[in-house]
């Protein structure tokens, strides 16, 4: 198999005495969608933040298409420019218009001409049905619209890897669908995605592989059918019993 887009090997991350990640081994291959599941506090968000060097690690290695990006000599900004990130609470910049949010990285980091960046931005906004909102400010949009803009902002620079951190957790139930539909279309377009999620039905539907995280370790992983339907580990069964009865 070719070099994975993301490979984590023995990654540890502690805050003081609290070890959040305890030796994570994980691979995400090109065009693959990997869903991270696990109780809150199991380390899903921290894992995503270490993957794009927004959080320190205390041991282990992180490779982006074969390059060891956990080496202290590596420029973190350059690494993050190759990765798209979407946060739970959108984190759109309130002082910028929707279009400026989407084109900021293209213009400032990738030095694309404004006209080119904006043409691409408007195209992306049109593809999610928000062309009319290009000049609006984020706070005039619904949560679902804001999160779709945040996703478009993350993919506007054609990143090699997309990290999605519980992107539907802050949304009203009736708005979840439009965001998940967008992720489905990204998968259809061949995106490589690592996502933390509470939506088991969605993970089952869209993920190629499901990874169960427990107390900072990968307890088991496999196809959605293996993990979500017939898990081997008792801890996985326990977790699924808790989330699926609600």
């Amino acid at each position: 198999m070719s070099e994975p887009v993301l490979r984590m090997s023995g990654v540890w991350c502690a805050f003081g005495d609290h070890e959040v990640l305890r030796g994570i081994d994980l691979e995400v291959h090109r065009h693959e969608v990997v869903a991270l599941i696990g109780a809150s506090g199991s380390g899903k968000s921290t894992l995503l933040r270490t993957a794009n060097l927004l959080e320190h690690i205390d041991d282990g290695q992180i490779f982006l298409t074969g390059e060891d990006v956990s080496d202290p000599r590596v420029d973190g900004d350059a690494v993050r420019a190759r990765i798209g990130t979407v946060f739970q609470s959108y984190n759109l910049f309130p002082h910028l218009s929707v279009l400026d949010n989407v084109t900021l990285a293209a213009r400032v980091v990738h030095k694309r001409p404004r006209a080119e960046a904006e043409a691409r931005g408007r195209e992306l906004l049109a593809s999610i049905g928000l062309a009319a909102k290009a000049d609006a400010y984020p706070d005039t949009l619904s949560g679902g619209q804001q999160q779709r803009v945040a996703i478009v902002r993350a993919i506007a620079t054609d990143p090699e890897l997309l990290l999605l951190d519980e992107i539907t957790s802050a949304l009203d139930p009736e708005l979840v669908g439009e965001v998940l539909d967008l992720v489905r279309s990204l998968k259809a377009g061949g995106a490589t995605i690592l996502m933390a999620t509470h939506e088991m039905a969605f993970a089952r539907d869209v993920a190629d592989r499901v990874v169960f995280l427990d107390a900072g370790r990968v307890l088991e992983q496999g196809s959605p059918a293996e993990i979500l339907v017939a898990p081997r580990e008792p801890r996985t069964r326990e977790f699924l019993a808790r989330v699926l009865t609600h």
Partner: peptide
């Protein structure tokens, strides 16, 4: 799966 030895909870991780 991970073949790495995992320290028991409470024990500090020994850096590689």
């Amino acid at each position: 799966m991970s073949g790495r030895a995992v320290a028991a909870p409470g024990a500090r991780h020994a850096p590689s």
